[in-house]
Design a protein around this nucleic acid. Structure first.
Lengths: 340, 340
DNA sequence: GTGAAAGCGCTAACAT
DNA sequence: ATGTTAGCGCTTTCAC
């Protein structure tokens, strides 16, 4: 094994405690003693064993961040933001992905590296409320994402219904009346939350319109391929929307690809709005209008919340925190054809 | 604190060792004893403290994966593959990013969570050979990425020169003769490896051509914005390439955006080839021809190599391993204009 | 097949 | 200001 405190102490001819004091920058150490110990440390190439420190302290300084899919740029960008936010508090981040499978989400929330991680930030897709209520683990958990739960955990998520309504409003203002919704969930679910779909319905209703439910297309997943397939399905059914509101940017991007292939123009024939504002949206041949959640804020809020609970200070009630968002209008909805 | 082995032992009226045996599936335990202990475990909700186990065993089952930027889909996709490959061996992955800064790369390679991670997979950008030679840390390190080092560590990377030559060959075969290279490094470097740029030069030479060095554009970073800016710079200098070979897909995508904005058509006016084969390349309005490294293979080889060294079996010499790659031809080079 | 006890490397009380 | 010691929770000889 490596060099331990004991070895250094022996070398420097002092006690373990003194070495520990030096290593931990304990103030009451005479400069000459510090120098002597430091020399021994350098000579031996001593490096503290963090595992031992963790065991002793009961904390590791590691938090976990679990997302459905790192291949989805939204989550990758968010992961980057979480790592940065955690670094501010000297926390390191263990990243895992669940493929959005309920089973794996449950597993992660229950016992992921127990005692190795101090806390968990989880962005679930198929996790159910009952799974959370059945959770044994005592370490803090912060939830991210579209779904809302009735469980005693902090949840960080933008107001998805309102954000979706803003997006649909924008399309309605453009004069579009056949607005498709791409990306509703296909799997059987107890609480079909579908916040963004609900926003689509509500905004139509608010405008005194009845949306055509035939324009709602479910997808298996949330990737570009799913969006492309959904769009193709819609067109093959003979539907001709004049706008698309997608569950997320990837689906929107996939849909745009299908539109291009079929010779339909964006936005002239079909206007498209996505959700997430991944960087890719700003660089396509036609840039994508999208709902942009404040990712750094989400990451910061989640980490801060977790760190706060870990510090164990005044433990406030679990909160539902709503970071900001903006609709970013780009070429995919920038058209002359305007008004109702 | 939580429930420990001792608590369970007390509850079940047995010794710690017996509980440990049950927890670790030690074979020589009578079924009834196992049942009795298991019951105590369930009743108390016991969960092994991995930190303690780690300290005792000297291993944690955690490996780190450090990339420049998780926001780059190539690294995000690779990270996903690494996580999956590690899971096969029951390893968990700590993901970190370095922003490609030499200082942070050195820090990570030297002392990242010492004793917490069993090994490290690092994809450096500005790390120097001397940094590696000065490395103190004894845990295994596997290097990924374009740069090649003369240091005793395993390196997993496709043959970048050959891959670049394949890409340039493809453009030459299309009849293109003014092939720009976007994304050479801008920072001062001791060993200007530039493997992909070298491939660009060599393939021209092999075809008896002298490439125009004015068509080489350095970029600050490796993102879409850098590609867009590089392309703009080239055009503003009055250069009119008929093809672009970009250091990676993001730069290629950014360049394509600039071309579109200036009314130039891809591939008719300018053919474009990227590098990495990120999923995005398959879904733009014009899909991108690109060099596709075998990402799952890279991840698997890196993890296997690391795990092998951790197992400490027959320690072979550090190797330079070359995973496969393919040139994937898509719309950005699919043109009628062919031949020399 | 099961129990007792040592010790992984560290921190924190307590003692000096 | 520095030293002594117990113990975090586990695995692992070594007895029995």
């Amino acid at each position: 094994m490596g060099v331990s405190l004991k070895d250094v102490a022996q070398r420097a001819g002092v006690s373990i405690k003194t070495v520990s004091n030096v290593v931990n920058n304990y103030p009451h150490v005479t400069p000459q003693m510090r120098a002597r110990v430091q020399q021994a440390i350098d000579e031996l190439g001593y490096r503290p064993n963090l595992t031992a420190r963790h065991l002793r302290k009961g904390r590791t300084g590691i938090i976990a961040f679990a997302v459905p899919e790192l291949g989805n740029p939204y989550f990758a960008e968010l992961a980057g933001a979480v790592i940065d936010a955690a670094a501010v508090h000297d926390y390191t981040v263990l990243v895992d992905h669940t493929a959005g499978l309920r089973e794996r989400e449950v597993l992660v929330s229950q016992e992921f590296r127990a005692h190795v991680i101090d806390g968990l930030i989880l962005s679930p897709i198929h996790l159910e409320n009952e799974d959370l209520l059945a959770r044994q683990e005592s370490s803090p958990l912060v939830l991210l994402g579209e779904r809302e739960y009735e469980a005693p955990y902090d949840q960080i998520a933008i107001d998805n219904v309102a954000a979706a309504r803003t997006a649909v409003r924008h399309l309605l203002d453009l004069g579009r009346r056949r607005i498709a919704f791409l990306g509703s969930r296909t799997s059987r679910e107890r609480r079909p939350a579908h916040l963004r779909l609900r926003g689509w319905r509500e905004e139509h209703a608010a405008a005194g319109l009845r949306p055509d439910e035939n324009l709602v297309v479910a997808t298996e997943g949330y990737g570009r391929a799913d969006g492309a397939a959904a769009m193709a399905e819609l067109l093959e059914r003979g539907e001709r929307p004049d706008a698309v509101f997608a569950y997320n940017d990837l689906i929107a991007l996939g849909a745009m690809r299908t539109l291009t292939e079929r010779g339909l123009e964006v936005p002239a024939d079909v206007a498209v709005v996505g959700f997430d504002d991944i960087e890719e949206s700003r660089y396509g041949a036609v840039t994508l209008t999208t709902v942009s959640p404040d990712k750094p804020a989400i990451a910061r809020l989640a980490v801060d919340r977790l760190v706060e609970r870990l510090a164990g200070g005044t433990l406030s009630e679990p909160q539902r925190i709503r970071p900001g968002y903006r609709l970013i209008v780009r070429e995919s909805t920038r058209t002359r054809r305007t008004g109702a």
